[in-house]
Amino acid sequence: MQPIRIAMTSFDTTSARLSPLQAVIFDWAGTLVDFGSLAPTQIFVEAFATFGITITLAQARGPMGLSKWDHIHQLLKEESIAAQWQQVFGRAPADADVDAIYARFMPMQIAKVGEFSAPIAGAVETLQWLRANGLKVGSCSGYPREVLDQLLPRAAAAGIAPDHVVAGDELPAGGRPGPFMALANVLALGIGDVRACVKVDDTVPGIAEGRNAGMWTVGLSLSGNEVGYSPEEFAKAPQQEVEDRVAAAQARLKNAGAHHVVRSVAELPRVLAQMAAGMRAGRMPG
């Protein structure tokens, strides 16, 4: 397999470049680890199949970024999927059915997530650069805590270890697109101003989360759910196809409210330096 073709930003450790930024809050799959956000996608397909329901990978990707229960709930609202459920079970899907699929999904996801814990190119170096520049590193995920408990040790062994992690099922207020997981990071990290935080995510709900929290937002196009290549597919993809997919992903993330969109976390340092310079000139996220 050819190496993933992502340009790396040169890293400058002059901390004044990032003042007054204080923290960056990352998503996980498709952002820091799991190029293409493959781990959750395939498991949704497999979990629905155990109920006799066929969904495509594209359908499975649609609500990505939500908590997994909410993700399943949204899929069951899709007309073609709801019609299949009606045909198989003789009734419309209900919340109890979401619970049943979720119960089937969870052990499958727990068993598989460790296979998708490899850092995305540039992620380790970017986290090192942030800390060298005095920024704190938070994170949150649509994954439940049971899944993260499997992912986090493997990611840490590979060099991905944020200062704080919030799971998609552990806040009573809920998950994305609400601001709650991002704001839980603000509290845990002791950040004095949400406007000095940057939310980095590869999904539309994740960008909405950051905007609803009053933060800067950076969307990731190529590495995440919106493009959805596996590393093997990306290595073989024609350049024009890649560019077309990236352009479509960039448009969706910008329409969701992303202040900036880059291809992957490897390009983040350049954008953060631009944000910090803008803040020093009086610009704030709005």
Results as ranks from 00 to 15, higher is better:
Gly114Thr: 01
Leu187Arg: 15
Cys197Ala: 07
Gly219Cys: 09
Thr217Gly: 04
Leu171Glu: 05
Tyr229Cys: 01
Lys199Cys: 01
Pro177Met: 01
Val137Phe: 14
Ala156Pro: 01
Pro205Arg: 12
Gly122Trp: 07
Gly224Trp: 14
Ser117Leu: 01
Val166Arg: 05
Ala157Lys: 09
Asn133Gly: 02
Glu170Pro: 05
Phe116Glu: 05
Arg154Lys: 15
Lys199Phe: 02
Ala123Gln: 09
Pro231Phe: 04
Gly174Cys: 04
Ala196Arg: 15
Ala157His: 05
Gly168Ile: 01
Thr126Asn: 09
Val137Arg: 13
Ser221Leu: 11
Ser230Ala: 08
Leu127Asn: 08
Asp169Glu: 07
Gly192Trp: 02
Gly219Asp: 08
Leu148Cys: 07
Ala188His: 14
Asn185Ile: 03
Asn185Pro: 10
Val194Gly: 00
Val204Ala: 04
Ala161Ile: 00
Gly168Glu: 11
Ile207His: 10
Leu222His: 07
Ser230Cys: 09
Ala156Arg: 15
Leu152Phe: 01
Phe116Gln: 12
Val147Ala: 09
Pro172Gln: 05
Gly159Glu: 05
Asp202Glu: 07
Ala155Thr: 08
Leu152Asp: 04
Ala121Glu: 15
Glu226Lys: 15
Val147Pro: 14
Ala208Ser: 14
Ile120His: 13
Ser223Gln: 11
Cys197Pro: 09
Asp169Thr: 03
Pro119Ala: 03
Gly174Leu: 06
Ser117Trp: 04
Val124Arg: 13
Gly114Leu: 04
Asp163Cys: 06
Val198Leu: 08
Glu226Asp: 11
Ala161Met: 10
Pro119Asn: 07
Gly122Lys: 07
Val194Ser: 09
Ala182Gly: 01
Gly142Trp: 12
Pro119Ile: 03
Arg154Gln: 12
Arg154Ser: 03
Met215Ala: 08
Pro162Ser: 03
Leu171Lys: 11
Pro144Arg: 09
Ser141Lys: 10
Leu222Ile: 02
Ser223Ala: 15
Ala132Tyr: 08
Leu135Phe: 10
Asp149Tyr: 00
Arg195Ile: 00
Gly122Asn: 10
Phe180Trp: 15
Gly174Gln: 02
Met181Leu: 13
Gly224Thr: 03
Asp193Arg: 15
Tyr229Asn: 04
Cys140Phe: 15
Leu222Arg: 14
Ile191Tyr: 11
Phe180Leu: 01
Ala173Gly: 00
Tyr143Glu: 02
Asn133Tyr: 10
Thr203Arg: 13
Met215Tyr: 10
Cys140Ala: 09
Thr126Phe: 10
Asn185Lys: 01
Asp202Val: 01
Met215Pro: 11
Leu220Arg: 11
Ala121Phe: 09
Gly168Thr: 10
Gly219Lys: 09
Arg195Gln: 15
Ser221Gln: 11
Glu146Met: 10
Asp193Val: 04
Ala121Gly: 04
Val198Glu: 03
Leu127Cys: 05
Pro144Gln: 10
Gly178Lys: 05
Leu130Val: 00
Val147Leu: 04
Leu183Pro: 04
Glu125Pro: 08
Cys197Asn: 08
Asp202Ala: 05
Ala123Trp: 02
Gly142Ala: 11
Pro179Ala: 00
Leu130Met: 15
Gly114Tyr: 00
Arg145Lys: 15
Ala213Leu: 03
